[in-house]
């Protein structure tokens, strides 16, 4: 078993909405190059993975997060 089963961070912490300006939160789910972490890796439920992905993409559009970090 490569990945231990984790509970979703958002349901655990009772976070209902993912804000694109909340960079500290979003950065937890980014890889070293600024890519969105796979659900398999972060344990986020599919409902919140969709919200998270949208928030990250909005933050990228607004120049708050990088598209590619080198």
């Amino acid at each position: 078993m490569a990945f231990a089963k984790k509970q979703c961070y958002f349901t655990q912490n009772n976070i209902k909405h993912v804000d694109y300006k909340d960079l500290e939160l979003l950065k937890k789910f980014l890889g070293p190059q600024g890519n969105i972490m796979a659900r398999k890796r972060s344990g986020v439920s599919s409902k919140y993975q969709r919200k998270l992905a949208e928030a990250v993409k909005r933050a990228r559009y607004m120049g708050l997060l990088p598209y590619i970090a080198r």
């Binding site: 912490n13 976070i15 909405h17 993912v18 804000d19 300006k21 909340d22 939160l25």
Partner: peptide, 11 residues
């Protein structure tokens, strides 16, 4: 421009 909710969404 995005659609959101009245409550504070920042954690």
């Amino acid at each position: 421009l995005i659609k959101t909710v009245r409550e504070n969404t920042m954690t």
